[in-house]
């Protein structure tokens, strides 16, 4: 396990990134740069998810095989969503 300080720092970062996501909407970036802003917001969500998985779920300390188990589920989701979405574009 990491130290309490590390967990606290991660928590602060997570709160800050969440606020940033909302701020992007409040500042009206979506009105003018929708797709760019969408990309930024989703990247921020991904960063937050990686921080939670890596530190709070201790994936950094587990054997890589555990990460691969989770990745398998993620790839399944992406295959279904991408395949289904592509089929109607």
């Amino acid at each position: 396990m990491a130290s309490t300080k590390t967990y606290t720092a991660i928590f602060v970062v997570l709160m800050a990134l969440s606020t940033t996501q909302a701020a992007v909407e409040w500042l009206g970036f979506l009105e003018d740069y929708y797709w760019e802003t969408l990309g930024v917001i989703m990247v921020l969500s991904t960063m937050k998810a990686l921080a939670v998985a890596g530190y709070y779920m201790h994936l950094r300390d587990e054997p890589r095989s555990i990460t691969y188990v989770a990745m398998a589920g993620l790839i399944g989701f992406l295959a279904l969503t991408a395949g289904a979405s592509y089929s109607i574009i």
């Binding site: 587990e62 054997p63 095989s65 555990i66 188990v69 989770a70 589920g73 989701f77 992406l78």
Partner: peptide
């Protein structure tokens, strides 16, 4: 390849992998 992971932890992770698909299908 799960030498240092207890049974219950591996069980929980495999369950989570499955739940990723459940939520993934909702989001999809």
């Amino acid at each position: 390849p799960f030498e240092s992971v207890e049974n219950t932890k591996l069980g929980m992770w495999t369950f989570i992998a499955s739940d990723i698909i459940v939520f993934g299908a909702f989001i999809g």
